[in-house]
Write a protein that binds this DNA or RNA. Structure first.
Length: 259
DNA sequence: ATGGTCGACTTTCGA
């Protein structure tokens, strides 16, 4: 089973690029971030025509996540538990019903800039809530994964120019420590577990020719429970998508699981 | 050395 995550940076602007990539990559499941769309204005038909069912958790203008699947989805839930006052659409879960059930959590973790400040406080508080959900996921002993735009550069090798990011919420020591506290509960970083490539970036800024200079960072991740990691075959990044017409600033990352 | 790009949706914010 092939499962992908892709921060599309606006479904309206990205629909042609998304359809082309779905037809080419044929993921069984695609987890999307930054749909920047209300549920009712999400362009369902052209995606459904490719054989996908769609579950969205959207809001006006910003954020928004979705799961596309060619296999049936069950038990869909929306919103990260732990704060009833949080109205950002950043979390969606569903169970993919194949030969074996796979629980999928799609997330768009807060950017957190500028740091310090209220946006950074929100990021760290959100990560504390994420850790609680992650712990529960492990305790369930399900075949499960969390994937999406984590807005975290885990280590220096995950940035072409780490010195550019030392003051940034994506790379501050406190951000990376919060990431490690989650991973160290018992998750496998799928890209790190399978890739030997030296430059494994998933985001290149639109500004200052970042793509042309390969000034990238790795911030889109797959975290697998042990039961899921036992099924991991490969994890790859579709970097070439960044060089196409009207690209997102992120590219798809995908795993192949023996399921 | 410095300024630079998108998307959504309005005059400006978020990334």
């Amino acid at each position: 089973m092939k499962i992908a995550t892709f921060n599309i940076n606006g479904i309206k602007a990205r629909l042609p690029a998304l359809l082309a990539w779905l037809e080419e990559g044929k993921p069984d499941v695609a987890i999307l971030q930054e749909i920047k769309s209300l549920d009712e204005t999400f362009p369902r038909e052209p995606i459904e025509d490719l054989g996908y069912s769609i579950e969205t958790h959207g809001q006006k203008s910003f954020n928004g996540v979705a799961i596309l699947s060619r296999l049936p989805l069950e038990d869909v839930t929306r919103g990260l538990p732990g704060d009833d006052n949080d109205d950002h659409a950043r979390w969606i879960e569903a169970t993919v019903v194949g030969k074996q059930a796979l629980r999928i959590c799609g997330l768009y973790l807060p950017n957190g800039n500028p740091a310090p400040g209220p946006k950074y406080d929100y990021k760290l508080a959100w990560m504390e809530r994420l850790k609680k959900r992650a712990q529960a996921l492990l305790e369930s002993e399900e075949i499960a994964l969390m994937a999406g735009d984590f807005n975290i550069i885990p280590q220096s090798e995950d940035a072409a120019n780490p010195q550019n990011w030392t003051e940034d919420a994506l790379f501050l020591p406190e951000s990376r420590a919060a990431w490690r506290r989650i991973v160290n509960l018992g998750f496998t970083d799928a890209l790190r577990a399978t890739s030997t490539a030296p430059e494994t970036y998933t985001f290149w800024d639109y500004q200052a020719g970042a793509w042309e200079r390969n000034n990238g960072i790795r911030i889109d991740h797959f975290l697998l429970t042990p039961q899921c990691a036992d099924r991991l075959i490969t994890c790859e990044i579709d970097s070439h998508v960044r060089g196409r017409e009207k690209p997102s600033d992120h590219v798809p990352v995908w795993v192949e699981l023996d399921l």
